[in-house]
Design a binder for these strands. Structure first.
Length: 553
RNA sequence: GCGCUCGUAGCUCAACUGGAUAGAGCAUCGGCCUUCUAAGCCGAGGGUUGAAGGUUCGAGUCCUUCCGAGCGUGCCA
């Protein structure tokens, strides 16, 4: 038609009465040509572009081309369909997430980075990327002086288990505030640590190990895929910090200001318009997190050969990452073809919209959160699932609780703050993990009752007889486009919304279409196949979000 | 002060990045269990998308101004 870059702009219709999909490209073309959009749409439709699929085309509104897929086409498409959706170009993606602090237990402040990060790495891997997880733990710094001094002073604490480390840290901090001698010892330990004194280092290692073991226990309870081998703490970059500063000096980027070594980057300025520096070495010679992050960046491009580097932190660090990436480019640490992304997320608020804290104002520990969730879930499971044994109830309660916590987080747009509300996330109504888990359990139950193996029905001829079967089929086929959108924007909530919508349609199908009492053997097999595929999508979807599914509940 | 993010039903959240009549759940009201798990399904009411302008065939989405909230703004991370 003589138009540059014509795009079909195909979307699922907002309203079923318009069909299944709509193409909005005609209006864009009409604008370019200065012609009537409906005429353009008609010309496109006249060419019968989807004739081979038997699709029904119509024109609506100012020039929408509505597409209703043929039932037979849909049924065939679903019969041949599989969940696997590999990307064309696989990349090596470094994902930096969770990042707990040693000697502090995981708390709500780590929840979103950990949960969202873990969902994304699983999804990246599912579509074929190579993911390198990096847990950038805070295992270095002045706080360790206090801890080491405290452990040294009290030999009993040397065999602490880490429920105790948090307490140890609190006790050490208190001692630091009130006991002058202790404070002196703590400062000495910091220096000894920096000089890699063997005894001090030994205690440090001991603390780090115990702390990491505790972190792994929480990960395991939360079904987080991070392993000890993914840990690469701040301490591991220590030796490289001077060379980072050296690199920056060689690149002519360092400016001394008030005794501190700074990098100034165009575009970063303070309120008065004066340039805002990144300080890479303090006036006392010490290094800062900027420097460590630069060293990590260098490591990730040069040693890990990343194509992409992704960071998950809350939105307060936006500025830090902007300047970090800018300096990384200037220093040559980030080659042109490598992309860096800072994925931000909002804060976790309580029911009333305030920061989520304990009564005394402390961060809520993930340990506490899991325990409370399991307890609440167990109450519900005991009252609703009396057909399960005690042991099964406990297991289901755990899956429901962990699923609920993670799903509540993942199902919201990550960039916004979200409210943590037990009653909403554990509810069986609405866009929640238990609702999806329940639908899956119902499907399993059908196969149990029929004494058939679900995996044998993943393939088979599908017949779409009832409108709810058709609607379900259409939703199943949208997995691929959902995953694409989800990973395109690195926003898991698109997948959650999809899974919820899929489940709603499954529930309707379930109400309207008896499976085991279907009229003919062909219809029985077709419906079992729809069930099996739905269960598979739920499983693939939820498991890639890090959420497990009970077979019964 | 400046910068970033945000403001959608009484509440919690969506809205495929500019598309048709802004959708779900909770809460409220009303229906459906001798049939595969009722932890379910069906229906009803509920909106000037913070306000006012602007761009466009078309705006919750883009631009401007205002109001309001949160966060950030040089040696902590």
């Amino acid at each position: 038609m003589g138009v540059e870059n014509p795009r079909a702009l195909v979307f699922a219709t907002a309203n079923e009465e318009f069909g299944d999909y709509q193409a909005n490209g005609a209006m864009a073309i009409a604008k370019q040509l200065g012609r009537n959009p409906r005429t353009i749409a008609q010309e496109i439709v006249d060419r019968a572009p989807l004739a081979e699929f038997n699709a029904e085309l119509g024109i609506g509104g100012p020039g929408f081309i509505n597409v209703r897929l043929d039932d037979g086409f849909l049924a065939n498409a679903l019969s041949d369909w599989t969940v696997s959706q590999p990307v064309e170009h696989a990349e090596r993606i470094v994902v930096d997430y969770s990042s707990p602090n040693i000697a502090k237990e995981l708390h709500v402040g780590h929840l979103r980075s950990t949960v969202i990060g873990d969902a994304l790495v699983r999804l990246f891997e599912f579509v074929g990327h190579t993911v390198i997880r990096q847990n950038h733990v805070g295992d270095w710094g002045t706080a360790f002086g206090k801890l080491i001094a405290y452990v040294n002073a009290d030999q009993d604490s040397s065999d602490f288990t880490i429920g105790g480390i948090e307490k140890l840290y609190v006790a050490a901090s208190q001692e630091f505030e009130t006991n002058f001698d202790f404070a002196q010892k703590a400062r000495k330990e910091v220096i000894k640590l920096q000089k890699l004194d063997p005894n001090t280092l030994k205690t440090w290692e001991h603390i780090v190990r115990a702390s990491l073991e505790d972190v792994q226990r929480i990960y395991s309870e939360l079904d987080i895929s991070l392993q000890l081998s993914d840990v690469r703490g701040e301490s591991s970059y220590n030796a490289g910090l001077p060379s980072v500063v050296n690199d920056l000096e060689n690149a002519g980027l360092i400016v001394e200001s008030d005794g501190a070594k700074c990098v100034f980057v165009d575009g970063f300025q303070r309120k008065d318009g004066s340039p805002l520096p990144m300080i890479v070495q303090k006036s006392d010679g010490g290094y800062l997190y900027h420097t460590t992050d630069l060293a990590a960046l260098k490591h990730r491009t040069q040693e890990l050969s990343a194509d992409r580097i992704i960071y998950l932190t809350d939105s307060r660090q936006i500025h830090h990452f902007q300047i970090l990436f800018a300096v990384g480019r200037l220093a040559g640490y980030i080659p042109k073809e490598v992309s860096t992304e800072h994925l931000v997320f909002g804060s976790v608020l309580n029911k009333d919209g305030e920061p989520f804290r304990t009564r005394s104002g402390d961060n809520v520990l993930l340990r506490t959160l899991i325990d409370e969730g399991v307890e609440r879930a167990l109450d519900i499971v005991r009252s609703k699932s009396q057909h399960l044994t005690n042991g099964e109830q406990r297991k289901v309660a755990r899956q429901v609780a962990v699923g609920a916590i993670k799903y509540a987080d993942l199902s919201k747009n990550r960039t916004n703050d979200y409210r943590f509300d037990w009653d909403v996330m554990l509810s069986l109504d609405g866009n929640t993990a238990p609702y999806l888990q329940y639908a899956h359990a119902r499907i399993c139950s059908i196969f149990n009752r029929a004494e058939k193996d679900m995996s044998e029905f993943l393939e088979g001829e599908i017949k779409l007889q009832h409108p709810s079967e058709r609607a379900l089929a259409l939703r199943l086929l949208r997995l691929a486009e959902t995953l694409e959108q989800c990973l395109d924007e690195r926003k898991p909530h698109y997948l959650c919304n999809y899974l919820y919508e899929l489940t709603v349609h499954f529930m309707r199908f379930y109400e309207n279409c008896p499976v085991l009492k279907a009229n003919t053997p062909q219809l029985l097999d077709s419906r079992l196949c729809l069930c099996a595929k739905t269960a598979q999508v739920l499983r693939v979807g939820l498991e890639n979000l890090g959420i497990s599914l009970p077979l019964r509940m």
